[in-house]
């Protein structure tokens, strides 16, 4: 997790490095520690260190991890030649290393040679069947080829062992959604809410899935999760506000004619609508009529 202080420090360092103030190595270390994705900057500043023999040798053994970091950043930027050079240097230094083997496989994948990459990954997995990165790379190959059901199979197999890996659950949920398998996606989002109960994005996504599924019970649940998102974000999330309005009107439509159990519903909706109006007035006054008509159509139906 990247905390606020980490982020400000990172931005400060980035600014300093960009303006030629030095501290490139510290910046690269921080990027690696926080696992943030800044490939262009890493590539630029990492190469500037690596191309300077004096700076490079002053790193000592950290030189090699820098090669690794730069090669991955280079692949991220599609500078495959740079990545290849970096990996070649590493290969020379550590001929038998699995870690370098992994980089080579990733390079194959970056070139789009799926079959070769797949073969390299499965070879590496035989030696170390519990390497999480390798499993994830295989999923990404399947996904890159458009083989979504294959990706789902691989992810499920991975999650059978590493079932506390919430990033994998999120990936699975997104794949399910893209295949319109909402029930499965809902399960994944429940899992995400369990592992990180205070992240509003999971609540929001879960509510979206439930709303899409439809049905009175799901709609009521969705409304509750939209409400929790509003609570967790302090009412700043526009999508959650819209979702709440939509849910309330959909519930009202379904329960029309029946006696209403949900008494506080309309009030929450009007509050959400008011919050939306206020937000639009502040940030996009030009779109106010659009919002008004949308809300009106919701209330009428």
């Amino acid at each position: 997790m990247v905390t606020k202080t980490d982020e400000t420090q990172l931005n400060r360092l980035e600014n300093q490095v960009d303006n030629g103030g030095g501290g490139a190595w510290e910046y690269l270390c921080l990027v690696k520690k926080l696992k943030v994705r800044r490939p262009e900057k890493v590539l630029k500043h990492g190469l500037s260190i690596l191309n300077d023999p004096k700076k490079r040798s002053s790193l000592g053994p950290d030189e090699w991890t820098l090669y690794e970091q730069v090669s991955i950043a280079a692949m991220d930027c599609q500078c495959l030649d740079v990545a290849k050079d970096c990996i070649k240097v590493l290969q020379k230094k550590f001929p038998e290393s699995k870690r370098v083997g992994r980089l080579e496989a990733i390079l194959l994948e970056a070139k789009g040679l799926w079959a070769e990459a797949e073969k390299a990954y499965s070879g590496l997995l035989e030696d170390n069947p519990l390497d999480q990165v390798l499993h994830k790379r295989r999923v990404s190959i399947a996904k890159a080829q458009g083989d979504y059901s294959g990706a789902i199979d691989l992810l499920n197999k991975y999650l059978e062992i590493f079932m506390a890996d919430h990033d994998a659950w999120r990936e699975l949920a997104e794949i399910y959604i893209s295949l319109q398998m909402y029930k499965q996606a809902a399960f994944c989002y429940e899992e995400l809410i369990l592992s990180q109960p205070t992240v509003p994005l999971h609540h929001l996504a879960y509510a979206d899935v439930l709303y899409t599924l439809g049905g009175l019970e799901n709609l009521q649940t969705a409304k509750k999760y939209y409400a929790s998102t509003i609570d967790l974000t302090g009412g700043k999330n526009t999508r959650a506000l819209f979702g709440l309005c939509l849910c309330t009107s959909a519930i009202a439509q379904l329960t029309k004619g029946r006696n209403k159990e949900d008494k506080e519903g309309p009030e929450l909706q009007s509050l959400a609508a008011a919050a939306l109006e206020k937000d639009y007035k502040q940030r996009a006054p030009g779109k106010l009529p659009l919002l008004a008509s949308a809300l009106r159509s919701l209330k009428i139906s």
């Binding site: 649940t221 409304k223 509750k224 999760y225 409400a227 929790s228 509003i230 609570d231 302090g234 009412g235 709440l244 506080e264 009030e267 929450l268 509050l271 959400a272 008011a274 919050a275 206020k278």
Partner: peptide, 17 residues
């Protein structure tokens, strides 16, 4: 815990509006 969140959201929105 979610039904409670509805009320909490209501107070949050009240304060916001």
């Amino acid at each position: 815990a979610l039904p409670k969140f509805e009320q909490r959201a209501e107070t949050v929105l009240r304060n916001l509006v």
